[in-house]
Structures are given as C-alpha cells and as structure tokens.
C-alpha cells in the first residue's frame, strides 16, 4: 500500500463523511419518520460497496481503486454507530415502532442492495 493510496483512502473517507453529515442535516429526524439521511447513505454506500467488490472480482477495477472506494468512500459515507445510537434513542423515547423499523429496513435493504448489486455486477 503506497503512501498515495493511503492518502486517497483517507480523503475519500473524509469526503464520504461530509456528504453523510450534509444529508443528515438536510433530512433530520422528524416524528413519524425514520432517520432518513442516515438510512439513505447507509443503503447507497452498501449497494455501492457490493457493486465495486463485484467489479474488482472481474478485474474491472484494481485493488487500489477498490480500497479507495470501498474502505475509503463507502466506509466514510456509511456509519454503524449512528444507526445503533439513534435506534436506542428512538426506543428510549417510546417510539418502539420507529426503532424496530429502523433496524429491519436498514438490514433488509442494506443486505439486498449489497448482495444484489454484487451478484448483478459480478455476473
């Protein structure tokens, strides 16, 4: 892993984090809704990661590009910690239905996006 690749991974992760931050501000949590911004970045990032891993297996993208995009960009764009903490906060606030939905929708669509696009791209 060259210094340039490491730098590219870090910058890609930071750009992903800023996009996540801006989306979570644009689509804040509202009563009766799921934490939409975080849900969207987690699903988009999971799908993108599946697709790029599939492309890398077909040697359509190099290992370095995979590292920058999957570990860097998708890793920075998506988040596990906010998903869990917001779910607990919803449950503590008595919004059990939203908490359970936040878990199930993220899991089902996240697996669907990542595995589906991986299989589709790999062919």
């Amino acid at each position: 892993m060259s210094a340039l690749v490491v730098a590219a991974v870090l910058v890609a992760g930071a750009v992903g984090a800023v996009i996540r931050y801006l989306l979570s501000k644009a689509y804040p949590v509202r009563p009766g809704h799921l934490p939409g911004g975080i849900l969207v970045v987690n699903l988009v990032g999971s799908g993108l990661a599946g697709a790029i891993i599939g492309l890398a297996e077909r040697a359509a993208v190099s290992d370095d590009v995979r590292l920058v995009l999957v570990t860097g960009f998708c890793g920075g764009l998506t988040t596990f910690s906010t998903w869990c903490v917001e779910t607990i906060e919803l449950a503590d606030g008595g919004r059990w239905r939203a908490a359970i939905l936040n878990v199930l929708v993220t899991l089902a669509l996240g697996i669907g996006a990542a595995v589906g696009l991986y299989l589709l791209v790999r062919g």
Binding site: A17, R20, S46, A49, G76, T78, F80, S81, V115
Partner: peptide, 20 residues
C-alpha cells in the same frame, strides 16, 4: 460524532462482507 466516530464505524463493510 459525524466525522471521527461516524467514519470509523461502517455499515458498507458489514454488508460487503456478507456478500463475500
């Protein structure tokens, strides 16, 4: 929050690993 911890943790790596 959004920067340090948010980018340290990841959901895409979990889902990518599930695909593999």
């Amino acid at each position: 929050g959004s920067g340090l911890v948010g980018s340290f943790t990841t959901l895409s790596a979990v889902m990518g690993a599930v695909a593999i």
